[in-house]
Computed example of a mutant assay.
Amino acid sequence: MSIQVQHNPAETQLKDLGVAKWPTWKKEVSTFDWTFHEQEQAYILEGECVATPVGGAPVHFGKGDFVVFPAGLKVSWEVKQPLHKHYRLDGNVVTQTWLRLKAAFTK
C-alpha cells in the first residue's frame, strides 16, 4: 500500500478525469494524522506536503502533482506550505459514511 505521485500530469489527463469539477480543500501549515477510508485522488493546486505512511518512508509532493492515496492508508501529514487541492474520493456518500462509522466503532 503506497502513495503514488505523478509530477506535472498532462492537461489532457486532468481534463479526462474532470479534475476541474472536483471539490477543493485547503489546509494551513500544520501536522496531523489521517486515515484514508477510501481511495483518494488529488491534484495539488498550491502547497508543499510530506505524507509519511505508518511504517513507511516519507512521500513529498506539491503544486502541480497528481497524488493517489490508497484506501486503508494511515499517514502523518506535514503541510509545509499552505495546501489547496482538488480531490475525489471513491464511492458515494452512503459508502463513505458507512466506512467512517465502521472505523469509529472498531477502534
Rank of each mutant, 00 (worst) to 15 (best):
M1I: 12
S2L: 02
H7I: 11
A10R: 08
A10E: 13
D16A: 15
L17T: 07
G18D: 03
G18Y: 00
G18I: 07
V19M: 03
A20C: 00
A20Q: 11
T24I: 13
V29P: 12
S30E: 06
D33M: 05
D33Q: 14
W34R: 06
T35H: 09
T35V: 15
T35I: 14
H37V: 14
E38A: 15
Q39G: 12
Q41L: 11
Q41F: 03
Q41P: 01
Y43V: 06
I44Q: 00
L45T: 09
E46Y: 06
G47V: 08
T52W: 01
P53W: 00
V54Q: 14
V59R: 04
H60M: 05
F61H: 04
K63Y: 00
K63D: 00
G64W: 04
F66D: 06
F66Q: 04
V67E: 02
V68S: 07
A71G: 12
A71W: 02
K74L: 04
W77R: 05
W77T: 11
Q81H: 07
P82W: 02
H84S: 09
H84P: 03
K85C: 12
K85Y: 03
H86G: 06
Y87Q: 10
R88Y: 08
R88N: 13
R88Q: 14
R88S: 14
L89C: 07
G91S: 09
N92V: 10
N92I: 08
V93N: 01
Q96I: 14
Q96E: 07
W98D: 10
K102F: 00
T106D: 13
T106Q: 15
K107R: 12
K107D: 11
